[in-house]
């Protein structure tokens, strides 16, 4: 009988599941995820063969161990996977005899599309359509305020990228990428100042809105007096 071992970790809001299936004889297994949705490992942007929306199917050889892993934005649960042994059938998925699917070809031959990074921004109709809707009201802000908000937004984005490294090697790479620890310290100080300024702005904004709500110019009366 096949046996299953697993480890569950959380990384930020993401749950990472690792599992090993071992079997004393050749068997076909299905690992059904208790977490949903399943973010399957991908090759060339396509889920690795055997993965579907709810789990993974594979054949484990005699005295072999198959190791798999996936991620999910769902809360961790124990056990994260259920092992289902299936009877071996002829013509099972993965048989090389049948014609491959489009996805098989993409996986094997590789994606021919240019990488996302070099795609020019704001040129195509698609990109304009997919621009987040909530950005539009920004254009009603005074230009000075808008550029100040943009600068803060950029700094927050950098900070978010800095906050995610999973180990020391990655962290060192991130520090080097952002021009050394001094620049990161300066960014940290700037973000603290940004936070103060933003909350001061919020107070001022609330006060102004309150005053605005209670103020009313008697335009008609004034018109009559003129």
């Amino acid at each position: 009988m096949a046996s299953l071992e697993w480890q569950v970790q959380t990384q930020g809001e993401i749950t990472l599941v690792e599992a090993q299936v071992t079997s004393a004889y050749e068997t076909q297994v299905r690992l059904e995820s208790a977490l949903s949705p399943v973010w399957a490992p991908r090759t060339q942007g396509v889920p690795v063969e055997g993965w579907d929306k709810t789990g993974y199917e594979t054949t484990v050889g005699r005295n072999e161990t198959v190791a798999v892993g996936f991620a999910s934005p769902a809360e961790p649960v124990e056990p994260p996977l259920e092992l289902i042994e299936q009877e071996a059938t002829e013509g099972a998925p993965g048989d090389s005899e049948s014609q491959p699917s489009s996805r098989d070809l993409l996986r094997t031959l590789g994606d021919s599309r240019p990488p996302r990074d070099i795609t020019p921004k704001r040129e195509s109709a698609t990109q304009q359509q997919t621009e987040p809707v909530e950005r539009q009201p920004e254009s009603t802000q005074p230009p000075a305020l808008q550029s100040w908000f943009d600068a803060i937004e950029n700094r927050i984005e950098v900070a978010e990228r800095l906050a995610t490294p999973s180990d020391a090697t990655e962290a060192r790479a991130v520090i080097a990428e952002h021009g050394g620890i001094e620049r990161i310290q300066r960014l940290d100080a700037q973000l603290a100042a940004d936070e103060k300024q933003l909350s001061a702005l919020k107070k001022r904004q609330t006060a102004l809105l309150d005053r605005l709500a209670t103020t009313d110019i008697p335009v008609r009366t004034l018109e009559r007096l003129e």
């Binding site: 021919s112 599309r113 240019p114 795609t119 195509s124």
Partner: peptide, 9 residues
């Protein structure tokens, strides 16, 4: 390029 990128082959 953007069109090539957005097209699902």
């Amino acid at each position: 390029l953007a069109g090539t990128r957005a097209a699902d082959p």
